[in-house]
Design a protein around this nucleic acid. Structure first.
Ligand SMILES: [Zn+2]
Ligand SMILES: [Zn+2]
Ligand SMILES: [Zn+2]
Ligand SMILES: [Zn+2]
Lengths: 145, 145
DNA sequence: CTCCGGTATGTTATAATATTTCATCGGGTG
DNA sequence: CACCCGATGAAATATTATAACATACCGGAG
């Protein structure tokens, strides 16, 4: 486990403690798997990774993911049915994700300003914003090819 | 079939003809079902609606939806696994959807400006933007309750 | 006309994603 | 201890989506 992952897990534990949330072993393990992956992870891949530990079932993984996303420790990528650890824990507002279709890299920005309301007085509770394309490394590689 | 739906179907036919695309009976029928629904429709609901016509199978529906979304006649709502007819056919750029969680109403804006690029030279090909909340009618109803 | 290539559809089966339901465990609280 | 409650275990099932192969149809080339 890299130093970076360890630090993120420690930060997550602190964040949970201050909010009165329980970062239990399964939840922590799932978060670790998300942190260790260079690209978004699918629920059933997490499930497979957990199998060696003990015969985990789908609900185990989905419950952990539900907890992590509610706690702001992870994000669900809607158009991929996949999940990624939040790299801006504590950031306010919903995240905008930039997902490289070539290498899977996910970059992330949390919006600071509240989203302005939509047309006709539509009141926004929650936004899903996902941008698909090429990260700078992959864009460069592609251009030179 | 309401006047409005008829008009939208005619417009879709014209749009397809000018682009050399074939709005075949299944595709047209699926688009009609999307146009007639006041709320987003799930693929298997479309499938059920098609059954009476003849025993349609999942691939039939998914292929039609794929065609319609590519042709810009419909949108897939990623976070709902559902589909809705495009109300701005011919609008440039990707759509931003405003989805009422109370009544299912979908409002839609097409972005005029190209999306600015993301962090670190990330190059955006395609964006998914979905806002969830309350339409003005439902927001008012809620407030007075 | 006949053949051929491409697009669209039909058909069967299966893969991938997600939830429901009920049982159990374990830690706090009175 | 008796109770509650949040978390987990376990089995079954629901929902969403695709793979793979066969068939039909329509255009143009020969
Ligand atoms: Zn984040
Ligand atoms: Zn990349
Ligand atoms: Zn549209
Ligand atoms: Zn509404």
């Amino acid at each position: 486990m890299t130093e970076e992952v360890t630090r993120a897990l420690t930060a997550a534990e602190r964040a949970c403690r201050t909010k009165g949330l329980a970062l239990t072993p399964v939840r922590r393990r799932v978060l670790q798997l998300l942190l260790e992956s260079p690209a978004p992870v699918k629920a059933y891949d997490l499930l497979a990774s957990l199998k060696p530990d003990g015969g985990a079932q789908p609900p185990t993984v989905y419950r952990a993911l539900d907890f992590l996303t509610r706690a702001g420790l992870a994000h669900r990528i809607e158009a991929l049915n996949a999940y990624t650890a939040c790299v801006h824990v504590g950031g306010r507002g919903s995240a905008e994700l930039y997902i490289c279709e070539a290498c899977g890299l996910v970059e992330e920005r949390h919006r600071h300003r509240a989203p302005e309301d939509g047309p006709d007085g539509f009141h926004i509770n929650r936004s899903v914003v996902e941008h698909y394309g090429r990260c700078s490394a992959c864009a460069t590689a592609q251009a030179s090819a």
